[in-house]
């Protein structure tokens, strides 16, 4: 019997099922998976956690650029009226101070990191 079936090539019809396999591949469309994952909108939360740990480390090499950015942003905020005119100098200087106080000279970073 088995032999007969083999002779009729019934089994080979199974090879058409290989065509089904192609359908199968299209069925494994990532869209379905993404839909399922869309409920996991906490992905943004994960970003937030990364941000909260403070990823924006600053270095001494950025010093001049950072301090000039402070002046530029202070000017914008003063123009918008957020920083009162009579406070502008103090506020700008205070932020420059706090940033500068955390920038370590490069030589200190090189020696013996542990």
């Amino acid at each position: 019997m088995t032999k007969k079936k083999d002779d009729k090539g019934v089994e080979r019809i199974g090879s058409t099922s290989a065509t089904k396999g192609v359908k199968g591949t299209s069925a494994v469309d990532a869209v379905d998976k993404v839909k399922a994952a869309s409920g996991v909108q906490r992905v943004s939360g994960v970003k937030g956690i990364k941000a909260a740990s403070g990823v924006s480390g600053i270095s001494f090499e950025q010093r001049e650029r950072l301090l000039s950015m402070v002046s530029e942003e202070a000017e914008k905020l003063a123009a918008q009226g957020f920083i009162p005119k009579n406070q502008r100098e103090v506020v700008e200087q205070a932020v420059k101070m706090i940033i500068d106080s955390t920038l370590l000279e490069p030589s200190a970073d090189k020696d013996g990191k542990k």
Binding site: A51, S56, G57, E73, I99
Partner: peptide, 27 residues
């Protein structure tokens, strides 16, 4: 800031826009 970090921004890419946003927050 004492640890050498600007106030963290969402995404945390560390680019110039992020630095500016952090600086605005400080200001």
């Amino acid at each position: 800031i004492r640890d050498g970090f600007l106030p963290a921004q969402e995404g945390g890419s560390g680019d110039e826009q992020e630095c500016r946003a952090a600086i605005r927050e400080l200001l």
